[in-house]
Amino acid sequence: MAIDKVFPSFAAAVADIPDGAVMLIDGFGGAGGMPSYLITAMRDHGAKNLTVVSNSLGLPGFGTRSEAELVDTSILFANHQVKKAYASFPVPRSPNVVTPFIEALRRGEVVLEVVPQGTLVERVRAAGAGIGAFYTPTGVGTDVENGKEKKTINDKEYILEYAIKGDYALIRAHIADRLGNLVYRMTSRNMNPIWATAARVTIAEVDEIVEPGELDPETIVTPCVYVHRIVKRPNKTRGTEA
């Protein structure tokens, strides 16, 4: 039988996500790499006690032309669905802006682990690559090293960081073929291809779906082995969308 990973709706693609799932979400924080429709479907689906692994945890207006066009993980915090978050950039730059994440933190609903951005990416990559843990120089001599094992390798100090594996990854790509091969568009690639490798089930929200063979094999960034479900966004144009 021909492989076809296309799902008919965002709701159907997230329907089996259980309470307590570990979710890898969010390209970088901007609208371009954000799986906005999948996040909305997650909110409507309502699974609780989620762990969110993400670069940001909701940044109003970041990487968009207007606040209104960005749906991000904020709506999951506002809906009381998240109990734990790993992030490198959890709050807005301005202390005057209070996001739904900050409100959830203040309510005591959510526990936060701040991770340096490169370490966050590497920890998720490690999970996808079957690496249990690794030594990185990032964070040595800072609060990040607290409670972590240190080791000197070739005269340089490192700290030990462990892999983070997800149950589901919600990613955003530009074009998919029906097998699940993905290409991204410009800076909206960032964490998405890494997140795609490290979850039991990876769900991709894309602008366009094509037949196998229509994507140039040299440009495929996420090979289909990593992708389990694909859903097409209603608005196909990209880069020009209002």
């Binding site: 690559a129 079957g130 073929d177 490798t197 063979g213 289909c224 082995v225």
Partner: peptide
């Protein structure tokens, strides 16, 4: 030979696929 839907990647990604339990 090539087939529609084929993709290429470097050796680190290739073995990440293997060791990471995706094969």
């Amino acid at each position: 030979t090539p087939l529609p839907g084929m993709s290429f990647f470097d050796s680190a990604i290739s073995f990440a696929m293997i060791r990471g339990g995706h094969v």
